Simulated assay, not measured.
Amino acid sequence: MDQERTSQEITSLVGREVYSNNGVFVGEVDDIKLDLGTEIVTGLALRDPNEELFGADVRGTRGVLIPYRWVRAVGDVVLVNDVVERLETPEEEGEEVVA
């Protein structure tokens, strides 16, 4: 029925820029994480993530995966909750980092 239309809508997310509610650039959608059993989008794989948000740990990586539940709106760009701006690394929280 609408499976073809739905798949086109999902793939249209690829390439869109992702911003927080506050207008901070987060990254660009590179791929979609999909639960095949339920056919529900569960995450967005972002390329070129904002190093100021995610720290130097993302340097040299292919990107980051954010939960789809953080998505607030999809239009010309994807808007996500500002929770992404409040991410802290274990060092910032005072926890020991285990390598």
Rank of each mutant, 00 (worst) to 15 (best):
D82H: 11
L44D: 01
V58A: 14
E96G: 06
G75T: 02
V74N: 14
Y68G: 01
P49T: 03
F54H: 10
R62E: 15
L53R: 05
L87I: 10
P49Q: 14
P90Y: 12
G63H: 11
R72H: 13
I66R: 01
A45K: 09
I66A: 07
D76F: 07
L44I: 01
E51W: 07
V41N: 02
P67T: 02
V64G: 03
V71G: 02
G60K: 08
V58K: 09
V77A: 11
E96Q: 13
L46I: 06
I40L: 09
E92I: 01
G94I: 07
G60I: 01
P49E: 11
D48I: 00
R86K: 08
E85M: 06
E52K: 10
V74F: 14
E92Q: 15
R62W: 15
R62I: 06
R59C: 01
L87N: 05
E88T: 08
E92A: 12
V71H: 05
L53V: 07
E52V: 00
I66Q: 00
G55C: 04
P49D: 12
E85G: 05
G60Y: 11
V84E: 04
D57W: 05
G63R: 00
V74H: 09
D48G: 04
V77Y: 14
E93Q: 10
A45Q: 07
V58R: 08
E95I: 04
E85D: 15
V80A: 08
G43L: 03
E52H: 04
I40E: 14
V80Q: 05
V84G: 04
L46Q: 07
L65Y: 15
R59N: 13
V83S: 05
D57T: 04
N50R: 01
W70Q: 07
G63P: 03
R62Y: 15
R59Q: 13
E91L: 08
E96P: 03
G43D: 09
R62G: 15
T89N: 09
G63L: 04
V83I: 02
V71W: 04
E52Q: 12
E92D: 09
E88P: 00
V74K: 10
R47M: 05
R86F: 14
G75W: 08
E52M: 01
L79S: 07
R47P: 02
V64L: 09
L79A: 05
R86N: 11
L65M: 09
N81S: 14
N50E: 12
E51Q: 13
A73N: 13
R59P: 01
E52I: 01
E96I: 06
D57N: 03
R86S: 10
W70T: 04
V80D: 01
I40D: 10
E93K: 11
E85S: 02
T89G: 08
E85W: 06
W70L: 15
E96W: 08
F54K: 06
R59S: 13
E96S: 06
L79P: 00
P90M: 09
L46V: 08
P90G: 05
T61K: 12
V58L: 11
